[in-house]
Amino acid sequence: MRIAIASGKGGTGKTTVAVNLASLMSETNSGLYYVDCDVEEPNGHLFLNPEVTAKRPLFLPKPSINEELCDGCGECKVICQYNALALIGEKVLVFPELCHSCGGCTLACTRDAITEVPHEIGSIFEGKAGELMYAGGELKIGIPSAVPLIKEVKSMVPNMDDAILDAPAGTSCPVIETVRGADYVLLVTEPTPFGLNDLKIAVETVRLLGLPFGVVINRAGMRDEKTNGYCEEEGIKILSEIPNDRKAAEVYSRGQMLYTGIPGFRKYFKELFLKLTAEIESLTEKSTVI
C-alpha cells in the first residue's frame, strides 16, 4: 500500500509523522520505503540518516534550434502549449525555463532543425536506514517545476512495494504528483486557524482527486477545538492526535525520532499505524464487494 502524507499548511508535522510512522512500520514490514517527495526542501534524511547507496542526476530534454536549418516557419511555436518558443521575424527564441519537455516542437519541425539537449534538473538518491528503504530527490536551485523529479523519485519504488510518501507543503502540482496513485492520504494539521484554513483546502483537493483520506492532528490540545469540530461536521476520520509537548520540539530539534525519543509517544504512532491499516483494509473490502 501507498500512503501519502500531505498537509496544506507548512510546518504542521508532515515529515515528523512520515518518518516516525515509516520507521515504526519498518520494524514489522521490511522492504517498506520512505519516499521524500519534498524535493525542493527535503529533510526526511535528517531524521532517518539513511546510508545513500546510489545517487544519479535527472535530465530533461529541451529544444535547441539549428539556425542554419531553420526557415522560420513557426510550426514549433504553434504546437508549444507553454509559450516556451517565440518567433521574431524568422528567428525562433527558446525559453527553456518555460519548456515542459513534451517534445512537440521537435516532432512538428519539418526541417529537422530542432535537437533535444539534456538539461539537468536535479538528483535522485537511494539508500537504506536500518530496515527502511529510502528514496528522495533534490531539485536544482532555479528549476521551476519539481513535478518531473517527483515522478522519477516515486518510480524508484518497485510496483508491489509498500511506501510512505512525504509530500511538500501546499496543494499545488508537486503535491498532486505526490498523492497521485496513493491508496490513502494522511492530512497532517495543527489546531490553529491557519492549520484549519489550509486543511480545508487540502480536503477539497483530495476529494477532487477521489482519494480516501484521514486527518492527524499534531500539537493537539492547544485549546482550539475548531479543527475537531470541522472534521466531525464533514465526516472526516481523525486517525491520531499527537499531543502538544515541549519535549517533542526538543527531540525534533536534535533530529531524533519522537516515538523512540519520548517515553509514551510510541503509542500515538502505533495507534496511527493500526487505525491506518484498518482503514485501508476496510476500503479494500468495500471495493471487493463492489
Binding site: 507553454y82 509559450n83 516556451a84 517565440a86 518567433l87 521574431i88 521575424g89 527564441l93 518555460l98
Partner: peptide, 15 residues
C-alpha cells in the same frame, strides 16, 4: 490569462 510566457507572446504579437 496565459498560464505562463505572457510577456514573450505579447512581445511577439507586438513585433
Amino acid at each position: 490569462n496565459a498560464m505562463q510566457g505572457a510577456g514573450i507572446q505579447a512581445a511577439e504579437s507586438l513585433a
